[in-house]
Design a protein around this nucleic acid. Structure first.
Length: 554
RNA sequence: GCCCCCGUAGCUCAGGGGAUAGAGCGCUACCCUCCGGAGGUAGAAGCGCAGGUUCGAAUCCUGCCGGGGGCACCA
């Protein structure tokens, strides 16, 4: 019996009690069971009676008693007790619990998926670091979290486009081009230019691609450095992200917004909706109509567009490309944008609550052995994505970044993540996955075929450690659904660590599966192998959602 | 001044109104000649402060204190 099946049985009990006139309440839409923290409180518990008591006008324990009486009859339920102020504590029949493993195996790689977002087309924009240098570690958090988010949304049935907004217009690109040119011709770094070591290397790559550049007139050379430098930067960024396991579907050029007419279309759209006005020689958007704290300039009095105009054109373009929902993952330093983006969507005639979602994530402090590392792209003192991956490997980096809530400013100690020991939770989880693999592999080598669920007596799985593991595996679909709905990938990681891997290690410790020496094959061998396969499946699927591998061996 | 995020164990962090607030590291004491010990068991140790809402608050609301980040016709 899975948690969802139990919740359905509980709901049926409430409905039956209402129909029988025992409870005068409206049946709530959400009738949930949860895993109690304390094992003495059964396999599952619910506070539904406490929630209904007030509306029913009856003492909670009384409500609990009458629901318990009805739930006791449900298939797969061994016992229901009323406890404390009115909790229902449910114990499942042993064979019923074993069916969790069957449902895991039946679903296989798709175990944990749901269809809450089926039919939704989502544009997920993340990273979008300026193409003026390598991806640095501050952006890596979004690469890890954003990609995990995309996988989670996909696991809930959404069609997700991963998009990178390339800021290839504006003065920072001019400075970048000037810096490359200066480095290539051996001159000093310009004022406000970029001075990292990479500038020299990238300048050389530009020359490798177009050897005659330095003999061009300065303005022409600068233009080539801008164009080719941008290509070099994007190639670099793309390849380091690819190495990190993050592939973007769309690299969207800011500059293209003007060329494609998207800017004009957006302006027209906003005028149509009646929120554009002119003042002080500039063109404004009246975002204060929708809660922004001040109106925003779209076109400056000198006739050039603002960055906000690009944002507007970009948003309108995304919607025109057919996305139901546009999710922006931004750093805390951009939180000031949220109000105006929302207002912008409203000005364009959308309901921002439906079409726009801005996730603000807090910054990462990078530490080296407890000491903060200051990062500045211009000064060239930074830890890049490639540096980090070089030190930790992709799995450890992605897992570490994805296991914390992005609401929290995170301290990432490079030295700690680098350690390949149990200090590092990713190894704990991966180790559980390799153990599962090794048991299954060893069984094969011993000539013990992997059993099929139909041939296995799951009621033999009665050991407390087996039950614990089964209960943990049963939670996976709900964890995935919650993580997707709340946009909190870290829930998956915590669940893998604290529920699955832990239960699997404990199961390992007490429940021998394969015969040793000249022992006979035990009756428990087949059901336990099945359980290991189920555990392996959940660990693979869960790590997969985080973009982390589940190795066969370590 | 205004806005956003955070404050939970010595450290890094979980904790969607529910029962005795959890994990890893570190610390203390144990277990293993066994399918891979990168394990397991036990222990010490904590919700910034003050109010409020609620049958019930780490969780929701208000104020204060502390830390971080923002408030351009910059990009």
């Amino acid at each position: 019996m899975t948690p969802d099946e139990l919740a359905a049985a509980l709901r049926a009990a409430v409905v039956a009690a209402v129909d029988a006139g025992e409870l005068a309440v409206v049946v709530p839409g959400d009738v949930a069971v949860e895993r109690p923290k304390n094992r003495d409180h059964g396999d599952y518990a619910t506070s539904i009676a406490l929630q209904l008591a007030k509306a029913a006008g009856r003492p909670p324990r009384e409500v609990a008693e009458l629901l318990a009486a009805r739930l006791r009859g449900a298939d797969g339920v061994a016992s229901v007790e009323v406890a404390g102020p009115g909790f229902l504590n449910v114990r499942l029949a042993e064979a019923a619990l074993g069916r969790v493993a069957v449902s895991v195996l039946a679903a296989g790689a798709s175990y944990g998926r749901n269809d809450a977002l089926a039919g939704q087309t989502v544009n997920l924009e993340f990273v979008s670091a300026n193409p003026t240098g390598p991806v640095h570690v501050g952006s890596v958090r979004w690469a890890a979290v954003g990609d995990a988010m995309a996988r989670l949304l996909e696991a809930s049935g959404a069609k997700v486009t991963r998009e990178y907004y390339v800021n290839d217009a504006g003065v920072q690109i001019d400075r970048f081009a000037e810096s490359l040119l200066a480095a290539a011709s051996g001159g000093p770094t310009p004022e406000d230019g970029y001075a990292g070591e990479y500038v020299g290397e990238w300048a050389q790559r530009v020359l490798d691609r177009e050897p005659g550049l330095l003999s061009l007139p300065p303005d022409d050379a600068l233009e080539r450095f801008r164009v080719v430098g941008l290509q070099v930067a994007l190639d670099e960024i793309r390849s380091s992200l690819t190495e990190f396991g993050v592939e973007f579907d769309v690299w969207f050029s800011e500059a293209s917004l003007t060329e494609s007419g998207a800017v004009d279309r957006a302006l027209a759209r906003l005028r149509e909706q009646g929120h554009v006005f002119e003042a002080d020689g500039a063109v404004w958007l009246r975002t204060t109509d929708f809660g922004d704290d001040k109106d925003r300039v779209l076109v400056k009095s000198d006739g050039t567009g603002t960055y906000f105009l690009s944002d507007a054109a970009y948003y309108v373009d995304k919607r025109a490309r057919g996305f139901d929902r546009c999710i922006y993952m931004l750093g805390a330093d951009h939180h000031g944008y949220v109000g105006r983006l929302r207002a912008l969507a409203a000005c364009a005639g959308d309901d921002p609550a439906r079409t726009l979602e801005v996730r603000i994530g807090q910054l990462v402090n990078v530490l080296q052995a407890g000491q903060p590392v200051k990062m500045s792209k211009r000064a060239g003192t930074m830890v890049t994505l490639e540096d980090l991956v070089g030190m930790t490997g992709v799995d450890a980096a992605r897992y570490t970044l994805a296991r914390s809530s992005s609401d929290t400013t995170m301290d990432l100690d490079v030295e700690l993540v680098t350690r390949q020991t149990s200090d590092n939770p990713v190894f704990y989880v991966q180790y559980a996955a390799t153990r599962a693999a090794s048991v299954l592999r060893n069984a094969g080598e011993m000539g013990i075929a992997e059993p099929s669920p139909a041939d296995v007596d799951l009621s033999l799985l009665t050991h407390p450690r087996e039950n614990e593991l089964l209960l943990a595996l049963g939670e996976f679909p709900r964890v995935v659904a919650a993580a997707a709905e709340l946009r909190e990938p870290h829930r998956v990681a915590r669940y893998l660590e604290e529920s699955v891997a832990k239960a699997a290690q404990r199961f390992w410790d007490e429940c021998q599966v394969l015969p040793k020496g000249d022992e006979e094959i035990a009756a428990t061998t087949a059901p336990r192998l099945l359980l290991w396969r189920a555990a392996r499946t959940v660990l693979e699927n869960g790590l997969g959602l985080l973009g982390v591998s589940a190795p066969e061996r370590m």
